[in-house]
Each structure stands twice: as structure tokens, then as C-alpha cells.
Design a protein around this nucleic acid. Structure first.
Ligand SMILES: [Zn+2]
Ligand SMILES: [Zn+2]
Ligand SMILES: [Zn+2]
Ligand SMILES: [Zn+2]
Lengths: 121, 121
DNA sequence: AGTGATTTTGATAATCATTCTCATGAGTGC
DNA sequence: GCACTCATGAGAATGATTATCAAAATCACT
């Protein structure tokens, strides 16, 4: 793990929540460190594929990243206040893979998101 | 509702599943009808704000739209050629409801879509 | 340290969905 | 027909993401 790459993840760690790639880029620059957008995106891409970073999309389509040590999972999102709950869904993972295989599909990904109103809302 | 607008929704209805704005645009053009991307996006935007269509985002950030009142079901979509397979997922339905209840969420909806490459692609 | 191979970087250009602009067209009522 | 309003759509602009590629850093081995 190079110096450039770890500063990307360090920025995420310090933030403790979701950041966009552009935010991470500017944050690193403000610290006086050298970096480029390409490196930020490359690092986030690899981190996401290794499940050490969690990705979700804003309404406008921009991707947000968050350090995530719990591996692949899904979310239950309150559509009113934005509260999110992380969900373990191994049953769904297995189901998704078997459905894909039985239909001859490869390189299968899936979107599984739950929306609703939390107790407060 | 103008002629242009209804052809956008008609395209969605005929598809019965998720389509991107670009797919809708090209589909209408292939039918020989006149339309513009701006109109397609405007129509989808308004329809989404009125809850006439559901919106979700692929991994690459592209938005997909579906008519709301079609019977509830899920899809396996080839990200290259657009081939879609309808999926039975009663197990997922039960799972989603139980997860939502155990977290105290109400009025829960869910998005479950699979993406991959079909045999030809 | 020196040398050559391999990997990483980052400025820049390219891509692509989406949005903006605005002149034109279609419709509506008088 | 005529004025008015609103929808349309071609093209430009936006903005995030990705691709290029030469320069820089790192590595492997002497
Ligand atoms: Zn809430
Ligand atoms: Zn999953
Ligand atoms: Zn295909
Ligand atoms: Zn379902």
C-alpha cells in the first residue's frame, strides 16, 4: 500500500462517514499532500472491490464511499431522516448467485436496498 | 399529458421493467417518432416526483426507471445487450419484510435487481 | 550506489449521463 | 386568423468518472 493510497483511506477513516471522491481529493490537497483524481478513484475502486470500502449513490448519482470493515452488506434506509442500518444478508447473496448461474449469467452484481420509515419518523 | 410524454411512459409500460433514459430515447426514435433527450428526462423527472415511476441506479451510476404499478417482480439484466429475465423471489420478499420489522421500520419497500453478462455477451 | 524492469502517479484529455438554453413549434381560446 | 402560453428538441454546458501516457517512484539484483 503506497503513501498516496493510504492517505485516501486515512481521509475516510478520519471522516468516519461517507465522502465523495472529489471531497477526498480536495481534503488531501488541503493537507498539502500531492495527489491526483485518478489515484483517488483508483484507490477507491480497488478498496470497493476488496470490500474494505462501502459505496452508495446520492440521488444525483454521485458515489459516496465509507470505510467499512464489515464486508459486503446492504442497507435499510429511512427515506425521511436518512438513518441507515447495515444488513447481513447471506441468504440473499446465495440466492442471487444461484439465480444468476441458473440463467447463464456471469460477472453478476446485485442491488439490494430496503427503504422505509424508522421508528422516529 | 402530451403525445411526447405519453410515449415515454408507454415505452416503460411495454418494457415492463427497468429502462434507462437513453434506452427509452432510442426506443422511441426507432419507432419513427420524434423526441429529444431533454423531453425524456423531463418526463421521467416529473413522473418520479409523482411516484409514477421507480428509480434505481446501476453500479456505474446510470439511473433506471420502471413504471410503479406493474406487478411486483425483479430482474436479471445483461449490462451489455439489455436482455432481461424476470425473477421469482418470494423468499426475498419474506426476508425483506422480516428484516424491516425487526428493525422497527414501517412502510418498507425494496429494490432487488441483478446485473451481469448473459451467455452471448 | 548503479542499472534496468516494473509499478504508481497525476496532469490532461476523453467519455458519458444528465441538465441547461433558447429558438421553434404546437396547442388553446378569442 | 391572432396573440398567448407552454412543450419540444437540437445543441451547448456541466460534472463525475475513466482512459492516456510520460514522468517519477519503487523494486530486484549486482
Ligand atoms: Zn427516520
Ligand atoms: Zn449482497
Ligand atoms: Zn447480453
Ligand atoms: Zn420484491
Amino acid at each position: 500500500m503506497s503513501k498516496s493510497q493510504s492517505s485516501v483511506l486515512a481521509t475516510l477513516e478520519k471522516a468516519g462517514g461517507f465522502l465523495s471522491a472529489q471531497q477526498i481529493f480536495q481534503s488531501i490537497r488541503k493537507q498539502g499532500k500531492s495527489t491526483g483524481l485518478a489515484t483517488v478513484y483508483r484507490t477507491l475502486q480497488k478498496a470497493a472491490s476488496e470490500n474494505i470500502v462501502d459505496v452508495l449513490r446520492k440521488d444525483d448519482g454521485e458515489a459516496l464511499y465509507r470505510l467499512c470493515d464489515t464486508g459486503h452488506h446492504h442497507h435499510l434506509l429511512c427515506t425521511n431522516c436518512g438513518k441507515t442500518v447495515e444488513i447481513e444478508a447471506s441468504a440473499v447473496e446465495k440466492w442471487a448467485n444461484s439465480v444468476a448461474k441458473s440463467n447463464g449469467f456471469k460477472k453478476v452484481t446485485h442491488v439490494v436496498e430496503l427503504f422505509g420509515l424508522c421508528q422516529k419518523c
